[in-house]
């Protein structure tokens, strides 16, 4: 493998890892703060991609699709939290699993009623549609580079908000010791609602940015859900930094696995997960007993 090919694969790995991070950070935030395991997270990723396709087809603008898609997901998140998710706090994981499974069935069917079950594609914004010529017969799409940059900005924003702002402080305190934080007068009903909506919006954002380079298809949420779970298990639940580490590890394993071991590439990430479970059952950056 020459240096240019290696570089291209490395970029692919980072780009894949960054999108994974977007989605998985939403999942890990929701679990860390709300204590709710949300299986419907992948469904919102799928919904984001379909919204991107649908809005972009109507308005002709990917940017409008992006902003509107995230806004819709955020509002849906607020509504779902106040109708369903609110009832799951402090409950058995089993009921959380099954309620979110019910949500998946509903979302899947609503998607089928609204958008059908066809496979769609979305065009990237015109000025990001080209490619950079690397060598005579090798080029790299600009849009993939843009995803890398965009996701890194979002990741930096998430870290800034969590580590530098008052909201972030409340979120961290809530993840650490919810009862104590409540006693100090933090309104967790409000915090929970917005954290859930942000988590859902992050999943949808992941689906929106991936739409132009992948196809938009009904089963895309399931695959992403499993990957996000593996990311969270690798990194440690509730830890956003852990999600970043886990997502990049999976990006690298999957991309280079496909290059070096194409026949077994689809199970390599699970081998990675098994090794991490043997080494650190609570995740690489996890410390809490869950």
């Amino acid at each position: 493998m020459d240096l240019v090919t290696f570089g291209v694969q490395l970029l692919n790995a980072v780009q894949y890892g960054m999108v994974l991070f977007l989605v998985a950070s939403g999942l890990t935030l929701v679990f860390g703060i709300l204590g709710v395991i949300n299986l419907a997270h992948g469904a919102f990723y799928m919904l984001g991609a379909y919204l991107a396709y649908w809005i972009a087809a109507y308005t002709g603008s990917f940017w409008i699709a992006m902003v509107a898609g995230v806004a819709i997901a955020f509002v849906v998140g607020l509504v779902l939290e106040s109708v369903f998710i609110r009832r799951l706090y402090g409950r058995d994981h089993l009921v959380q699993v099954l309620l979110s499974f019910g949500l998946i069935l509903v979302i899947d069917e609503v998607r089928e009623i609204l958008f059908g079950k066809d496979v769609h594609s979305v065009a990237p914004p015109a000025w990001l549609a080209g490619s950079i010529q690397l060598t005579d017969n090798l080029s790299y799409p600009v849009y993939r580079l843009a995803i890398c940059g965009f996701c890194m900005i979002v990741a930096a924003l998430i870290f800034l908000v969590i580590t530098r702002t008052k909201i972030g402080m409340i979120v961290r305190a809530g993840a650490e010791n919810r009862e104590m934080t409540r006693v100090l007068g933090i309104r967790f009903d409000v915090v929970n609602r917005y954290v859930f909506a942000v988590g859902i919006a992050l999943a949808a954002l992941g689906g929106i940015v991936i739409a132009p380079i992948s196809t938009v298809f009904p089963g895309m949420g399931d695959g992403m859900l499993i990957l996000s779970f593996v990311v969270v298990v690798l990194g440690g639940i509730g830890s956003v930094a852990g999600a970043a580490v886990g997502a990049l590890l999976i990006g690298l394993t999957d991309t280079f696995g496909k290059v070096f071991f194409p026949s077994v590439s689809s199970i390599l990430i699970y081998v990675l997960m098994a090794m991490v479970l043997l080494w650190r059952p609570n995740g690489i950056l996890g410390r809490r007993e869950v």
């Binding site: 679990f31 395991i37 699993v97 499993i226 779970f229 298990v233 059952p281 869950v290």
Partner: peptide
């Protein structure tokens, strides 16, 4: 693992 981890690991 325990609890919610167990769910995610078995799913994966």
């Amino acid at each position: 693992t325990r609890g919610v981890y167990f769910i995610m690991v078995t799913l994966a």
